[in-house]
Design a protein around this nucleic acid. Structure first.
Length: 425
DNA sequence: TCTGGGGTCCTAGGACCC
DNA sequence: TCTGGGGTCCTAGGACCC
């Protein structure tokens, strides 16, 4: 009996989400833009064929998109998050142990299953059911290691004949798959390593595993070696336990030229800090410190540059909104330099995150913790019932100067009652 | 003119100690 | 002040992922 991993990957996820609510776009070119409509972050197959690259700035391809009648959407994370939850919940009804890896991917623990034939059948059933139930096409790869399962999912997506499921369970299949797989597409091999490997004559994943263990260790450190071993069929990356995030970041770019007034940046930072505290509470953790950062556009060498990076250490780890927000704003004020700078991006990072049941008391701690955490909890509840940010700390403000631009946003079909779709009889 | 957001892990090098 | 080995801890930066 062979231990196997599965990887379920939603095809062109954001585009597929938009298509669910625009069935007329099912075979048309679609792209989804990042926040502020800055870059292209998702492309349908048709858009990829037009030569639109991942991450390209929107303004550089705007004309090409218009000329080809490509449907353009601003990113709608409420919608994608909700669709993701639906896909994951259906997946876990077919496979008992899954680990959600990203908004559109999940690893499956298939160690209990020893019959590959029935496994393939179940997997095809799952793919079919998710498409029927949620409307999202999913590709499923199955193999003895996570890296190979990722590779298998790419084949499952590329070749219709697989019916959404590709299994690499023998050495012959593995060799064939590796020989056809470009080294830069391997999970764990990024741009830098791929360039270096190509320089050394490595074009495919197969070429890579012909290199010696010592060479790989020396040139690519132990992470590269892990990828090498996984491609050879030796599993090194196990299923993770569901744990909490070790750092939590909330940040945004500001539209147009950016913000130069401290009040505006303060307001943004206050909101980022509040959001961080909420994320901390949601995963039942506290943070020992935060970093407040803000910087000007690196693309504008004609304008003065500034980089703020201010750390706050808390006497006792906290997830309290009031405490995190006021400290973040103080830190920004402390680090603010005189002069005119247009800040293009800012954010708050919560660091030294640990579980909230393990807080160590501190002699100099003066805040009433129980009272504060009760307050935060009430704030979260009210916001959940009545919509985001119903209750806020004063400095979070209501001005609109730092908010995002999203000209092409679709509606909140699944999460906002006002936008519920109307079915015609 | 307009260039995303949120993570993890590893390593090298500096500070500091004996 | 210079010389020297060896250890730990921290941080910045790099590389990767989606």
């Amino acid at each position: 009996m062979m231990k196997l991993f599965g990887l379920a990957d939603c095809n062109n996820f954001y585009c597929s989400c938009e298509r669910v609510f625009h069935p007329d776009l099912r075979d048309k070119a679609v792209v989804v833009l990042s926040n502020n409509d800055g870059c292209v972050v998702a492309r349908s197959e048709e858009s990829k064929r037009l030569g639109i690259k991942m991450g390209v700035p929107f303004y550089q391809v705007r004309e090409l998109l218009e000329r080809n009648g490509v449907a353009v959407f601003s990113s709608n994370y409420n919608l994608y998050g909700d669709m993701s939850r639906r896909v994951m919940s259906m997946l876990s009804s077919f496979f008992p142990k899954i680990h959600i890896y990203s908004i559109d991917e999940a690893f499956l623990d298939l160690s209990e299953i020893d019959d590959v034939v029935s496994l393939t059948e179940i997997s095809r059933k799952a793919v079919k059911a998710i498409y029927k139930g949620v409307g999202i096409p999913v590709s499923l790869g199955i193999a003895p290691t996570k890296t190979l399962a990722k590779m298998a999912s790419v084949y499952a997506k590329k070749h219709k004949g697989y019916k959404g499921v590709c299994v690499i369970d023998t050495d012959e299949k593995r060799e064939k798959a590796l020989k056809l797989f470009p080294i830069g597409d391997v999970w764990g091999i990024g741009r830098k390593h791929s360039k270096k490997l190509e320089y050394h004559g490595v074009k495919t994943a197969w070429d890579f595993i012909q290199k010696s263990e010592g060479w790989v260790r020396k040139e690519m450190s132990i992470t590269g070696l892990r990828t090498w071993k996984e491609l050879r069929g030796e599993s090194c990356i196990e299923m993770e336990d569901d744990t909490y995030k070790k750092s939590i970041c909330t940040s945004r770019s500001f539209p147009d030229q950016g913000l130069n007034k401290i009040e505006d940046v303060e307001e943004a930072v206050a909101n980022f800090a509040a959001k961080c505290s909420k994320k901390l509470r949601e995963q039942h953790t506290v943070c020992g410190s935060i970093v407040v950062f803000a910087y000007t556009s690196r693309f504008r060498d004609d304008m003065p540059q500034s980089y703020i990076n201010e750390i706050v250490n808390f006497p006792v780890p906290t997830n309290d909104m009031q405490e995190i927000v006021s400290n973040a704003v103080d830190a920004l004020r402390r680090a603010w330099k005189t002069g005119t700078y247009y800040f293009k991006k800012a954010g708050v990072i919560a660091c030294n995150v640990c579980e909230d049941n393990a807080i160590q008391g501190n002699l100099f701690d003066t805040v009433d913790r129980d009272k504060q955490s009760a307050l935060s909890k009430i704030v979260d509840e009210i916001n959940m019932r009545n919509g985001q940010d119903t209750v806020r700390v004063a400095v979070q403000g209501f001005s609109n100067s730092w908010h995002m631009k999203n000209e092409y946003i679709s509606k909140q079909y699944t999460t906002n009652i006002k936008d519920i779709i109307i079915v015609k009889a």
